[in-house]
């Protein structure tokens, strides 16, 4: 269960965030892809990291300001007449 880190895996890790954001130059990106193809552990880390971000995003996107809180906000700001229905 514990990942033994080789130097190569550590190098991957350093660039992991930029890699999944697509912020790396083509050469480095290709090198990482080649490593991942042959390294099960790094593959798992990349996949579960992407999934983790996806899950938090989905959960976040479904969070909206409740209608009663929206009304209290507009009342507090003295903007009652401008309150729009839920966005």
């Amino acid at each position: 269960m514990t990942h033994q880190h080789s130097l190569a895996c550590k190098d991957i890790l350093k660039n992991l965030s930029d890699f999944i954001d697509g912020d790396l130059d083509q050469g480095l990106c290709a090198e990482i892809e080649a490593h991942i193809e042959n390294c099960h552990d790094c593959q798992v880390v990349v996949n579960t990291l992407k999934k983790t971000i996806h899950l938090v995003q989905v959960d976040g996107q479904e969070t909206h300001l409740p209608t009663d809180a929206r009304q209290r906000l507009f009342a507090k700001l003295d903007l009652d007449t401008y309150v729009e229905p839920d966005q």
Binding site: T63, L65, D78, L79, Q87
Partner: peptide, 22 residues
């Protein structure tokens, strides 16, 4: 101007609320 401010609130309140909640 109230209308402009109301527009600012309408456009951003969901996002600011979510950020605060998280």
């Amino acid at each position: 101007e109230k209308a402009a401010f109301a527009q600012l609130v309408n456009q951003n309140s969901d996002h600011i609320y979510r950020l605060g909640l998280k």
